[in-house]
Structures are given as structure tokens and as C-alpha cells.
């Protein structure tokens, strides 16, 4: 392979090393996009899926099986403020902000999920 030496000029070699070095950075920046969480999908049995952006402060009312579930979006986060259920487990879940995060009000048939992937195959809790 000594012919390779003659094949590549100095500029070639510099270029080659630069591109090889920059490559991992490219992978990282392109693939970490997947983990970005900037919108939320809210599902209800009566209204199906609806998508909302997390970048805008807003209050959302969703019709569930027994009544309304109320959401609040602020600072890139979302939470259940209130819901038609007894235990309010959904409200207790608090603010969600991470990609793939999920919470639901089971009695009222309402759930929310932040877009993007969590980066794990499954979450244990």
C-alpha cells in the first residue's frame, strides 16, 4: 500500500482526517435530535389524539369519559392540573418534560405523552 502515500497529497490527508474527526459529531447532533421533546400528544377516548406544542404557555381542557381533564403547559413542561377521578394520581404525577414521558388519568380515559423517544427500551418504576 505504499502507493497510497503517492496517491494522497498533503491537502488530501488533511481533508481526510478532518472529515473522519467531524463524523462522530455529525452522528451525535443528528441522532440526539430524537431525544428532543417539544410537543405533547394528548389522548382521550372521546377526542382521540391531539398534539400541542410545549413552547407556548397554555391551558387545555379535554373531555374524558366522566368529565374534563385540565392540563397546563408552561416552560416546556406539562402537567395534569385537575381531572374527573377520585385518587388524582394523574395530578400527582406532576410536571412532565422529558421526551417519551407518559402520564394518564385511567378512570377518565385521558393520557398524555411527550413526543420523542426516551432513549430506553422500557422504563421501570
Amino acid at each position: 500500500m505504499s502507493k497510497m502515500g503517492k496517491l494522497l497529497t498533503t491537502a488530501d490527508k488533511v481533508l481526510l482526517s478532518c472529515t473522519v474527526l467531524l463524523l462522530p459529531f455529525l452522528y451525535f447532533s443528528a441522532w440526539s435530535q430524537d431525544l428532543q421533546a417539544d410537543s405533547v400528544k394528548i389522548w382521550s377516548s372521546s377526542q382521540g389524539f391531539q398534539t400541542f406544542t410545549l413552547n407556548q404557555k397554555q391551558k387545555i381542557l379535554i373531555d374524558g369519559a366522566h368529565g374534563k381533564s385540565v392540563f397546563e403547559i408552561q416552560n416546556g413542561k406539562i402537567r395534569f392540573v385537575d381531572s374527573k377521578c377520585t385518587n388524582k394520581i394523574c395530578v400527582r404525577a406532576g410536571w412532565l418534560s422529558h421526551a417519551g414521558a407518559f402520564a394518564a388519568c385511567l378512570p377518565n380515559n385521558v393520557s398524555m405523552e411527550i413526543t420523542g423517544t426516551t432513549g430506553y427500551d422500557s422504563i421501570n418504576f
Binding site: 496517491l7 494522497l8 497529497t9 498533503t10 491537502a11 488530501d12 481533508l15 481526510l16 472529515t19
Partner: peptide, 12 residues
């Protein structure tokens, strides 16, 4: 200088 060779141009 000598600039790029065929490989360099080709990559670009």
C-alpha cells in the same frame, strides 16, 4: 501548494 489530489477532490 500542490493542492488536492484526485482523492481529495473526490471526497469534497
Amino acid at each position: 501548494g500542490k493542492g488536492f489530489g484526485p482523492v481529495g477532490y473526490s471526497i469534497l
